[in-house]
Design a protein around this nucleic acid. Sequence first.
DNA 1: ACAGCTTCTCAACAATTCATCAACTGTGGG
DNA 2: CCCACAGTTGATGAATTGTTGAGAAGCTGT
Lengths: 266, 266
Amino acid sequence: MASEVPAAGREDAIVGDAPVTTTSLQSGPRPDGPGTRTILVVDDDERVREVVSWQLEAEGFTVGQAGDGPAALQSIAALPPDLVVLNLSLPGLGGLDVLRRLRQHSRLPVIVLSGRNGETDRIVGLDLGADDYLVKPFSPEELAARVRSVLRRYDPPRIAESEERAVGSGDTQLRIDAGSREVTVDGRVVELTAKEFDLVTFLAAHPRLVFTRAQLLEHVWRSDSGCEATVTEHVHRLRHKVEPNPARPRRLLTIRGVGYRWEPGP
Amino acid sequence: MASEVPAAGREDAIVGDAPVTTTSLQSGPRPDGPGTRTILVVDDDERVREVVSWQLEAEGFTVGQAGDGPAALQSIAALPPDLVVLNLSLPGLGGLDVLRRLRQHSRLPVIVLSGRNGETDRIVGLDLGADDYLVKPFSPEELAARVRSVLRRYDPPRIAESEERAVGSGDTQLRIDAGSREVTVDGRVVELTAKEFDLVTFLAAHPRLVFTRAQLLEHVWRSDSGCEATVTEHVHRLRHKVEPNPARPRRLLTIRGVGYRWEPGP
DNA sequence: ACAGCTTCTCAACAATTCATCAACTGTGGG
DNA sequence: CCCACAGTTGATGAATTGTTGAGAAGCTGT
């Protein structure tokens, strides 16, 4: 684990060869109204940044751009946005490093853009802790939808106005606090056992990615021997604690013939 | 962590060992207007490069050339083009290796030129992930058409102007996300069974290549015994989920007397 | 160290979904 | 017009997942 940090010092060396081709977030006092959110788009491809920014701005967001990892970190330090859209495969300081660095002292929402379709395996090993995940090529509308979704999930105001959850109608709010190892559903704390917590944490840290039972045994149980039925069974009990209707899972989905997948909230 | 990132950093090393025998993409600041796209043509035959370049330039593209694999990789690293036209049978570092190397950290669109018509079998084993595929001899116009087609598919801007998809009239956008095993048609998620997903993924990974039912049984079902009617039947149900009009397939085409072929989008 | 508790594991069974294949129908090419 | 091949449909069985319970293993507090 110690081996994850030292890259910090090398940052400048790595970056030196990359010209900063970046528009940073507008500085000065934030002129936005109370409802306006700022998004930072990090991608080395300028066209991608432009298209994405255009779409997000059209939806009323304030958008900043960064062309590489260091620029992104600097931008975030200077004026933290409400959400970051981060391409994983950046040249130089990779997107994964940026994310890891970020996660060391912040819970800033991040949506990850993955270049290759089969990149799953590389992503899996690292507990990256992204809030959502998108494979290129994607449509700007889809990204915008995800942005809205993540922000909605993260928005504290939402809790205040969610009085009418009476009938158990629709949305369920689910929060995972890794620090206190507490999981909250609809404002109520649910008691999870150690394994249950590890499982839900792992899955939620890799939203939308499908894992086989064997993979879950490997990453959550950290054992190569072990009965796959155990995974099934834990999923079962987890659903009873976390899903509004365990018979019709909305978060912890079964992918028949493959395994399970975590679906981030609406 | 040092071991996780290096893919990006090693790029130069990989490229460095190869003598540059190549006209590389023009360097310096890109002088193109916003609409201009750059294509890299990789072929060991200079005449082919010339003819293809001539045609593409006539259509308004900026074209770079590379005569072998290493040169191609270097060129791409130095100034990534918008699309690569890649001959599979390069001397030395083969085209397949180039493609594989490329795919390790990028989703750059690639059109593959295959020398022999019967090369299918060699291609099939490796999931090369090309975006389109052309058999020599081909007409330059045909290649140009394919280039335009692939770029159109990949271009995010396309989405901005496609407001009038209302009536489900013409173009259907189809996306396959291997990570979440989700297939999206026209923005709607369609539920596929495991086999259906495997089948469509395999076919789409080898655009335009015709496969017999036996080949599909071998590669998708991974069995040598098995009734070919099963393939037919799965194609049938797949069409109903994926094709706008299953009676007149636009993607999953029947090649009478042979088998099936996947046609990449318009 | 031990008792009492919780949690994990695994096997057995039930329920569901899906793949398969065969028989039939439709269609296009010669 | 005929024949071969592809499309369509439905019944059946196999495979996968959900569910439950009982025993094993691990903790905690005394």
